[in-house]
Amino acid sequence: MRILSLIVLSLFSSINVSARQNAQLMFDQANTLLEENNFMGALESYRNIEKIGEISGPLYLNMGITSIEIDSLGLAKFYFLKARNFSATKSTADEAIEYVSSQFSRQSAMLPKLPWDRAVNNLKVGIGASGIFILGFIMISISVIVIIFNWFKPIPIPKKPTIITTAALLSVLTVVLAFYVDYVDQRYKDGVIIVKEIPVTTQPADNADLVSIAYEGYSITVDTFTSENADGWYYIRLGNGQFGWIKISGSKIL
């Protein structure tokens, strides 16, 4: 059994190592194309790395730079936003985003987020849903250990039931919070408009009433759950708080 486990483990490790080596090789080839000013070829090669399931900050940063070269600023902003999620490229990506944002002909007004949304977003970006869950699990485990210990050897502390109940309740709430943050993360995705302009409509139909026009580089929030009700359309929230539908081809989800 132990040998079998070792074999499975080593096989899994070798697959992971192989995938990373392939990704690095493809990355080097794509960089060569970029240096040769073959921008379309380079972007295609970078996308192929993404397709095999391997990502990195430098990958998205280079994709953003390539997109600028092919004069697709919306796409460039999209990739720089992705590069910002990696610590290795965060500061460079911020600098690039500042440049790209200055190049758009139209700038979107941005409403500040509500405190609750901002807190959830900070939790999502910071510790993440998995991190919150692990924290909750540790708290639950400590509570359970204390409860069990108290069953067999009572602990001499004042207001013991209150403390144990409060600790257990907080632990459960932390786990519930982890699932909520994960739900928000799965349902609401940040996105960027990548075409010159695209109509935002009240319904997912070409002839529906117009809500607004979204221009290249606008940041949007996509409700993926509601969007499942209409093939080929996203239900979005614009930076100014307006809601509407846009065609999928006009935007990219982070």
Binding site: D28, E54, I55, P58, L61, A88, E95
Partner: peptide, 15 residues
């Protein structure tokens, strides 16, 4: 725009 592409080794992670 002074950002230069990164052409060396990168830390890869599953997507």
């Amino acid at each position: 725009f002074d950002v230069q592409p990164i052409t060396g080794l990168a830390n890869w992670e599953p997507a």
